[in-house]
């Protein structure tokens, strides 16, 4: 029954690689590798018992991963390794740590700010 079925080939079609058309695709991909030089404004808001930061508006590199934002908050609060900290966007969800600040800003910014809530206990979890 499945005798004549060709298995799926998930690599790029060999014709591309053979004729050099792949170069065009590679060049296009390369444009996405350049770091986004922009900065976005992040507004930090404490939730529950979490201490308030001295300044709550910061410019953060758009190319940073959200993980860098989490580490930034931990430094600001002088949190030790292992101290619990939970971070959310728009009081709604915890983004993946490898989401970039640029992606989150494009999708979830409010009035030109990306709002990051932080809490010492799990909320909206």
């Amino acid at each position: 029954m499945a005798g004549n079925r060709k298995p799926y080939n998930r690599s790029l079609p060999p014709a591309w690689a053979a004729h050099g058309d792949i170069q065009e695709a590679l060049d296009a991909l390369e444009t996405y590798r350049k770091k986004d030089p922009n900065k976005v404004i992040v507004r930090f808001k404490a939730v529950g018992n979490a201490p308030i930061m001295k300044t709550n508006l910061y410019q953060i590199n758009a190319s940073n991963r959200f993980q860098a934002v989490i580490q930034f908050v931990r430094r600001q609060l002088q949190w030790k390794a292992g101290d619990p900290l939970f971070t959310y966007i728009n009081l709604a969800f915890a983004p993946a740590p490898d989401d970039t600040v640029a992606n989150l800003y494009k999708s979830f910014a409010t009035d030109g700010h990306l709002i990051v809530n932080y809490s010492t206990t799990a909320a909206w979890g």
């Binding site: 970039t100 992606n103 494009k106």
Partner: peptide, 11 residues
Amino acid sequence: YLPDGPVLQDL
């Protein structure tokens, strides 16, 4: 998810 590259997300 771009190969060897960044992850793109937008509205």
